[in-house]
Amino acid sequence: MKLALFDDNRLGVVTDAAITDVTTALPWPHDPDPLTAGWWRALCRDFAAVRADVEKAVTGLPSRPLDAVRLRAPALSPSKIVACASNYAAHVEEMHTVQERTLGQVESWMMNFDVFLKAPSSLTGPGEPIVLPEGEIAAGHEIHHEAELVIVVGRGGRDIPEERALEHILGYTAGLDVTVRSAADRSRRKSHDTFSPVGPWITTADELPDPANLTIDLVLNGTDRRQHVTTKDLITSVPAIVSYASHMMTLLPGDLIFTGAPPGVGPIHRGDRLDMTISGIGRMHTPVT
Results as ranks from 00 to 15, higher is better:
residue 149 L to T: 14
residue 54 V to E: 06
residue 161 P to V: 03
residue 137 I to V: 14
residue 6 F to C: 08
residue 237 S to E: 04
residue 151 I to E: 05
residue 50 V to L: 09
residue 221 N to T: 07
residue 156 G to A: 04
residue 94 E to T: 03
residue 129 P to V: 13
residue 201 W to D: 04
residue 188 R to Y: 15
residue 119 A to Y: 13
residue 100 E to R: 15
residue 188 R to I: 14
residue 258 F to A: 06
residue 21 D to Y: 04
residue 134 E to P: 09
residue 90 A to K: 15
residue 82 V to L: 04
residue 91 H to N: 00
residue 200 P to K: 11
residue 38 G to W: 07
residue 17 A to E: 12
residue 287 P to Y: 09
residue 105 Q to E: 12
residue 260 G to T: 00
residue 9 N to G: 14
residue 56 K to Y: 07
residue 283 R to G: 10
residue 136 E to G: 11
residue 32 P to D: 05
residue 228 H to P: 04
residue 218 L to W: 13
residue 108 S to V: 11
residue 96 H to K: 12
residue 283 R to S: 13
residue 280 G to K: 01
residue 74 P to I: 02
residue 130 I to M: 13
residue 96 H to A: 07
residue 157 G to L: 13
residue 96 H to V: 08
residue 232 K to W: 11
residue 153 V to F: 07
residue 109 W to K: 14
residue 17 A to I: 07
residue 96 H to T: 01
residue 193 D to E: 10
residue 69 V to M: 03
residue 213 N to S: 13
residue 42 A to S: 15
residue 288 V to S: 05
residue 97 T to D: 07
residue 34 P to W: 05
residue 258 F to P: 11
residue 13 V to W: 03
residue 143 I to Y: 08
residue 103 L to E: 04
residue 134 E to W: 10
residue 262 P to G: 00
residue 23 T to P: 10
residue 43 L to Y: 01
residue 103 L to M: 14
residue 285 H to G: 06
residue 269 H to K: 14
residue 199 G to L: 10
residue 98 V to N: 15
residue 3 L to K: 04
residue 150 V to L: 07
residue 192 H to A: 14
residue 166 L to F: 02
residue 138 A to E: 13
residue 59 T to M: 09
residue 214 L to M: 13
residue 286 T to P: 02
residue 30 H to K: 14
residue 37 A to E: 05
residue 35 L to W: 06
residue 148 E to A: 07
residue 157 G to M: 12
residue 90 A to V: 08
residue 205 A to Y: 00
residue 111 M to P: 00
residue 44 C to I: 00
residue 268 I to L: 14
residue 79 S to W: 14
residue 6 F to P: 01
residue 76 L to C: 12
residue 88 Y to V: 06
residue 50 V to W: 03
residue 94 E to S: 05
residue 83 A to G: 05
residue 94 E to Y: 02
residue 240 A to V: 08
residue 190 K to S: 02
residue 160 I to L: 13
residue 269 H to C: 09
residue 275 D to W: 00
residue 74 P to W: 14
residue 253 P to G: 00
residue 262 P to F: 01
residue 15 T to D: 09
residue 278 I to S: 05
residue 25 A to Q: 06
residue 191 S to W: 01
residue 192 H to L: 01
residue 48 A to L: 06
residue 43 L to S: 01
residue 252 L to W: 09
residue 180 V to E: 12
